[in-house]
Design a protein around this nucleic acid. Structure first.
Lengths: 223, 223
DNA sequence: ACCTGAACACCGTTCAAGT
DNA sequence: ACCTGAACACCGTTCAAGT
């Protein structure tokens, strides 16, 4: 191995600080997300990670929300293709479950996805796949278009619901409130408080997708 | 009018600093929300408003999320009763629309409601009313219980989607992406990009509620 | 028990100045 | 054009000390 004149020793001892780029920033953001969660994916923290000042990132990224959307599109690349086996309904539910499961690992990302829509290549692929499945099921195209929106929002919102550390306390407060309600003032809650709280998360999620798909199939869009 | 001995003049010239209380804090929070939006409903800002230090508020409120949930329950008191006229479906949709419309005026509150569930009296009333309407429609109680959850989440998520100032930019980015997609790689999007983007917000919302109600009616919960 | 000042450990974003 | 340091204008929450 001969020393190359264009990479002098002093530069090779420690790798030269890489030039900033949008891709590099997003990659660093994904790494920080995986290691420490979205709350650490801040402009300041990323700048530190990339050995620069926060102001430098604004050349490549409009703001924090846009950065989070780019991170989500990146992770969308990990949910895999539409399964080959099964009815269109089963495969549709599997794609939606895969999407939701990915967001469950990063619920705060789901939260931000609700307001900062991604528009990257992986998101477009997901929309295309969902439209194709609904089309295969004979759902009229206009309904399918609105339905995709509904399904994705539902999945995202369900994952978002599970973000934030205090969820447990809120849940406890709500279950207490539901269980201790008076059957004079709130007869339906009192009669059904168990049902309101029952069910494993995955069972409820699956029921939701089924209800949504059925509703989308049977509800015509207005003229 | 005679001077009352328990309110000496010096105290009446400027009203005495009122004692702190949970109600007072929540009331101040609602006022700040109405005047300047949820992003200003911070512990520090409220403390300033109540002429004290931020640390004092923690005696009455666990954290910022709990404060926001209390504010939401307060606003839930403004959405009015279930309408008297119309089919159960129409009335159900009207209640949900009223709930959503209220959140549309405070989309950032909707965002926080997705993760910090209220458990106050107004929220319980809303659940009771929705259960009663589904019951009236003959929806089996277990389905109705899961359905209420689904309907409220949908309404909240729809309102939340409209929060954040950058929504317009994201929307533009997404519509551009959808319109410029290749019909070789994304045939379904290319064929239906107009449908994906069509419809007035209220028409889409109404369609969503109808699809949801239909799905809830027809989808049995697992044993 | 309730209240407080002060501190700790952070944020996003802008801007003038440099290269 | 790209990059930067420094500043502006904030946050939530904790804690020791007071009343």
């Amino acid at each position: 191995m001969t020393a190359r004149p264009d990479t002098p020793r002093s530069r090779r001892e420690r790798p030269a600080k890489p030039a900033l780029s949008r891709e590099g920033i997003v990659a660093a953001a994904v790494a920080v997300l995986r290691a420490e969660g979205l709350q650490k994916v801040t402009m300041r923290r990323l700048a530190q990670e990339l050995d620069t000042g926060p102001a430098s990132l604004y050349v490549y990224v409009r703001n924090t929300a846009e950065l989070h959307a780019a991170v989500l599109d990146e992770l969308l690349g990990t949910i895999g293709p539409v399964p080959a086996e099964g009815s269109w309904r089963e495969r549709l539910e599997q794609v939606l479950t895969a999407y939701t499961a990915m967001l469950f690992e990063h619920p705060s990302l789901a939260r931000s996805a609700l307001t900062a829509w991604p528009s990257g290549p992986h998101y477009l692929n997901l929309i295309e796949n969902l439209l194709a499945l609904l089309d295969e099921g004979g759902v009229p195209p206009a309904q399918a278009a609105w339905g995709v929106d509904l399904l994705l929002q539902q999945a995202t919102a369900t994952a978002a619901e599970h973000s934030a550390g205090d969820t447990q306390d809120d849940w406890d407060a709500l279950t207490d409130a539901l269980r201790n309600v008076s059957d004079r003032t709130h007869p339906h809650i009192a009669a059904r408080s168990d049902d309101l709280l029952s069910g494993a998360p995955m069972a409820r999620l699956s029921w939701r997708f089924q209800a949504l798909i059925t509703g989308i199939e049977r509800t015509a869009v207005p003229d």
